[in-house]
Design a protein around this nucleic acid. Sequence first.
DNA 1: GCACGTATGTTTGTCGACAATCAGATCGTC
DNA 2: GACGATCTGATTGTCGACAAACATACGTGC
Lengths: 268, 268
Amino acid sequence: MTDLTEVHIVANTPRRPIRTVTPLKPARALTPVPRESTVDLITARLRQGIFEGTLAAGSPLGEAELADQLGVSRGPLREAAQRLVQEGLLTTTRRRGLAVVTMARDDVADVYLARRAVERTACQHLLRTGDPARAVKALTRVHQRMTRASRRRDAHAVGDADIEFHQALVDAAHSPRLSRIMSTLLIETRLCTYSLDRMFRVRADMPDSHGEIIEAVRVGDEPGLLSVIDRHMADAVERLTAPTEVGTIADPAPARPRPLDRLDLPAD
Amino acid sequence: MTDLTEVHIVANTPRRPIRTVTPLKPARALTPVPRESTVDLITARLRQGIFEGTLAAGSPLGEAELADQLGVSRGPLREAAQRLVQEGLLTTTRRRGLAVVTMARDDVADVYLARRAVERTACQHLLRTGDPARAVKALTRVHQRMTRASRRRDAHAVGDADIEFHQALVDAAHSPRLSRIMSTLLIETRLCTYSLDRMFRVRADMPDSHGEIIEAVRVGDEPGLLSVIDRHMADAVERLTAPTEVGTIADPAPARPRPLDRLDLPAD
DNA sequence: GCACGTATGTTTGTCGACAATCAGATCGTC
DNA sequence: GACGATCTGATTGTCGACAAACATACGTGC
């Protein structure tokens, strides 16, 4: 269980209550209670399913079956699906229903092009106006977890930590939009892995690159940081696109059998 | 009528049919027919309403009334609304319904931070791997239209052309993700104008900045292009945030009375 | 006069049902 | 035997309806 979905939910929560009046400025004594809607819950669950591979890349989804598994009606399910369509994780074709997107080679390059845009800007903004020391602390924690997972040869945990690392890097810039865009791009990154790199190879040199990022943030070396980011992205594209044979693009290898959990709705 | 919604629809259309098999490679003899769904149409119409200011920033929306205006039921309308929620243009609060987002000062800075990320990367990618000459042609066309509008003192047309210019700039990079992110950011830019700059000031120096961008693209001057972009963004943030008094943030000034048009649905 | 509790109207959230449409299977014809 | 037409089953798109919850207005007690 990764924390990514948590991040997502936070990012999609309305950023402030519907009235903008700020009546007395009570210095934020109490933060508003979250109160997620059902559509939020369904969306998070579907996103988690795509992220974990339970909903395999390219597989068509039946609305009735999904709604039944989640214990809701088709209405809210369809609304949640539209969110994911907008996010680019699902496609919907008229009279043909929903399907998880499949990533082709062009998409890999495009995802990493967008990630480069977001991560570079986030890093610049972090160094110039943020709190690098705090960021270093958070990043180091994820990095250690990643190193441990790598030592265990736990490919899936390494992948989770990798994604968590980059999300934390962008979150450190405290930009709601960059964070939100990043969370989508990271799920798409995961989809690239599912669609293309069916072996889940653990690269021994991957954690080192992250160490360089942390070090560059610590000393405030902006050019160095940006060039590490660039190299990191280029390496990832190389690794994902180069070794794959042409024919075996959409191999649904990592489909784990575990079904989707039911929603924890208030007892009806 | 701006062409932006057109761009939008294209960006949100599934990028390829649901089957990825490419049976015989017939060299794209026929492009697939668009066939937009009703949800697509409603989404585009709502987006257009937000973009034009018909749906004022911060105003709450009643589902029944909106559905009635558009001539559809509440179901498809709610699905379309969820797309815009995911896009960040609408908010939904439990049991309190939909509302158009309002942009505060922090949001202005954030929108332009994200725009800087996208536009810089798009420009780099255009110069390195794209077709700058073709881009110059398209950009010049929009630029001329903008100059004419500026000479007429037509503030709204200038704003439309401005947004079209930046969308064309990013589209020239041929990155589906950057284009899609950009289209959302541009509507948010428009919302910033509605929320903060109620005077719709036409800046005489704005077209010049665009001329510099075109020139930099033409000669392939990457550092110069990036610095023009940076300056352009910084100027915009300055212009939008500086002259506004603190208290008058959410003034719904530009609400034009024109109601939402009905959808052009096939006769039932 | 102010605060609290109560009642009511409106809106949202959710569900079930129906019709239109498409994919696959079956059958017939050349 | 292969190709085409037809049929059928299943699924999607859309709508209307119902119940729950909130906001507003009203009334009562102190």
